[in-house]
Amino acid sequence: MNTRFTETAARAADREELMLGRGVLVSHETVRRWCAKFGQAYASALRRRQPRPGDKWRLDEVFIKINGERKYLWRAVDADGNVLDILVQNRRDTAAARRFFRRLLKKTRMMPRVVVTDKLRSYSAAHREVMPSVEHRSHKGLNNRAENSHQPTRQHERAMKGFRSTGGAQRFLSAFSGISPHFRPRRHLMTALNYRAEMTVRFAIWEHVTGAAGQPTTA
């Protein structure tokens, strides 16, 4: 049995035991419905607490399988690795790049100073149309931060055994991209003491956002 799958199953079992210990019966479908109902609201609340994005954006696209069909997940991050937006699309042509650029500008309400992409020609064509005054750097080696931001998505894609629909993937990944980074500070730049202090603050913020602050810890 795959080691990663075994670890994921073990974590899921631990969570179910914790819920059972509180007298709450849940299933995977229950958790899915909770995520669908509350996930985006929590992600939006966390994003509102983030500082203004940096002026250097990195964009990247990666394919994902949805019901056996190849789709493309477009993602933009700032210089600190904060996810600015994601979009699931059928193609990775100029029209798709243009749509993502416009959506990104509308969501962030700002114009970047520099945009870094890989060598996909669709980026250059869309850049000339949508933001010609912005510097565009096209180089695969400069885009590692955007590429690395796909890793948590890949992990959950395997755990979920793929996505069932484009809309479902968009809803899940939009919420997930806003929540997951909150619990993933740049640990390699911190001492153990600073990391523990940072995580204490982040869990306090999470409890405030979800309304868990001040609630009893036992059923």
Rank of each mutant, 00 (worst) to 15 (best):
L142F: 12
A97W: 01
K106F: 10
K107F: 06
S165M: 10
D93K: 07
R98G: 03
R196G: 02
T153Y: 05
K161F: 13
H127T: 01
R186F: 07
N144Q: 13
R99D: 06
F203S: 05
H156V: 13
V116F: 12
V209Y: 01
R103F: 08
R99M: 08
R92N: 01
S124A: 15
R121Y: 03
F203I: 12
E207Y: 05
R186M: 09
P181W: 08
R109F: 07
H156L: 13
V134F: 09
E135T: 04
H150K: 03
A213M: 05
S124W: 11
T108R: 04
D93G: 10
S165P: 09
G178A: 08
K140A: 00
G141C: 07
R103K: 14
I179S: 01
A97C: 11
N194E: 10
F176S: 01
T200V: 06
S165D: 08
V114R: 10
E198D: 14
H136G: 07
N90R: 15
D118Q: 03
R158Q: 15
S165Q: 10
R109N: 10
R158E: 14
T108Q: 13
R128C: 04
F172S: 07
V116Q: 14
D118N: 03
H139L: 12
L173S: 05
P181F: 08
T191Y: 10
V209E: 03
L120T: 03
P185E: 11
F163L: 02
M190S: 05
E207P: 02
L189Q: 15
D118T: 02
A169F: 09
I205A: 06
L189I: 05
R103D: 06
Y195Q: 14
V134N: 07
L193M: 09
V209D: 03
M110Y: 02
L105W: 12
A213T: 12
R99W: 06
R91F: 06
V114D: 14
A204E: 15
M190H: 08
H150Q: 13
G141W: 15
E157H: 14
A125H: 13
T117C: 01
V130L: 00
K107E: 12
P112L: 00
K107N: 07
A125I: 03
V130W: 01
R186L: 11
F203Q: 11
F163C: 03
H156A: 06
R121V: 02
N194P: 06
V134Q: 04
H188E: 11
M190V: 02
H139D: 15
K161M: 14
F101A: 07
